[in-house]
Simulated scan of single mutants.
Amino acid sequence: MPKIKYSVVDLDETFISKNTFKLWLIFLMKSLLRSGSVKYSIKLFVILIKRLFKKISHMDMKRETLKITNENVVNLNVDKFVFGLDKYVNKNILDKMLNDQNTYWILATAAPEIYSKKIAFTYGFNHCISTSMVIDEQWNENIREIKLKNVLNYLKSKDTNCISAVFTDHHDDLPLMRISEKVYLVNPKEASKLKVDEQIKNYTTILVE
C-alpha cells in the first residue's frame, strides 16, 4: 500500500479565487438586514468603517465580526453562502485532489470555521484547520506561524511531521513553505512572489484565469 502523503491547501485566492472573508462580510450584512437585525447591522457597519479608516486592526475587525456572527447564527444560511462560492473553485487543485487518493488533503486557512469547514466537507478535504469561532482570551487568527503550529499539531496526531506539498497564493504561508517538500504558488501577486523568491528556491507557479 502506498505511503500516505499530506498536502496543505490555503483557501482565499488559492482553492477559492476570491477572498472569502470579504464575501462573508457582504453576506453577513445582507443577512442581518434581511432578518431585521438593525442593532447588529449598525454594529457591523461601525466595525467596518473603523477598519476602513484603520482605527482598528484586521484581527480586531475579524474578532468583532465573528462575535456578531455567533450572535446571529440562526439567521445565517451558511449552505447558501458556500454554494455561491462554487464558481470560484480552483478546478486545477480540485482535479489534483480527485486524482490523488494517496494524499491526505488539509484545508488550512485564516477564514472562520463557520464556513471553511463546510467548504472542506463539500469538496472532499480530509481535514480543515481554520480560525476558531470560540472568541476568548486565547483566540487568534489561524495565520503565519500560528497556522504552521496548528498544522504540525494535527500532523503529530497522525504520527508524522512531513508535508508533501503546500498550495498557496501568499507569502504569509512561508512558515509552511519552508518545511514542505513541494510548493505551489497559485496566482501570486508580485509582492508575494518577490518575498517567496528570497526564501524558497524551487516552487511551481499555477496560473488560473
Score class of each variant (00 low, 15 high):
Tyr40Asp: 15
Ile143Lys: 13
Val166Gln: 04
Lys87Glu: 07
Asn126Thr: 07
Lys158Ile: 04
Ile47Gln: 04
Lys67Asn: 14
Arg51Thr: 03
Leu107Phe: 09
Ile119Ala: 09
Glu113Phe: 03
Tyr40Pro: 00
Asp95Val: 10
Asp136Ile: 06
Ile119Leu: 13
Val166Leu: 13
Asp169Lys: 03
Phe45Arg: 09
Tyr115Arg: 01
Gly84Asn: 13
Leu48Asp: 11
Leu48Cys: 15
Asn102Ser: 14
Asn72Cys: 04
Asp136Cys: 06
Ser132Ile: 10
Asn70Met: 14
Ala165Ile: 00
His170Leu: 00
Val78Lys: 12
Ser31Met: 12
Ile129Met: 10
Thr131Asp: 02
Thr103Pro: 00
Lys156Trp: 01
Asn75Ala: 15
Arg63Trp: 11
Val82Cys: 07
Leu152Phe: 10
Val89Glu: 08
Leu94Ala: 01
Ile93Tyr: 04
Lys87Ala: 08
Lys149Val: 06
Pro112Glu: 07
Cys162Val: 13
Lys117Leu: 09
Phe167Lys: 00
Phe125Asn: 10
Glu71Thr: 04
Lys54Asn: 12
Asp100Lys: 00
Ala165Cys: 09
Val89Trp: 07
Asn153Arg: 12
Arg34Ser: 13
Tyr104Asn: 04
Ile106His: 00
Tyr88Lys: 06
Ile135Gly: 15
Glu137Val: 03
Lys158Met: 09
Arg34Ile: 12
Met59Phe: 07
Glu137Ala: 05
Val73Tyr: 13
Asn161Gly: 02
Ile68Phe: 06
Ile47Asp: 05
Leu107Pro: 03
Lys87Phe: 07
Ile68His: 09
Tyr154Met: 09
His58Met: 09
Lys96Glu: 11
Asn70Ile: 09
Lys87Asp: 06
Asp159Tyr: 13
Tyr40Trp: 06
Phe125Glu: 08
Lys67Trp: 01
Thr69Asp: 01
Leu98Met: 13
Tyr123His: 11
Asp159Gln: 14
Leu48Lys: 12
Leu148Ser: 02
His58Gly: 01
Ile106Tyr: 01
His170Pro: 01
Ile119Val: 15
Gly84His: 06
Lys147His: 06
Ser37Ile: 09
Ser164Arg: 00
Leu66Glu: 12
Tyr154Gln: 08
Thr131Pro: 05
Ser130Asn: 07
Glu71Trp: 04
Ala165Phe: 00
Asn102Pro: 01
Ile146Tyr: 12
Asp100Arg: 01
Ser164Val: 01
Thr160Pro: 07
Trp105Leu: 00
Leu32Glu: 02
Tyr88Gln: 11
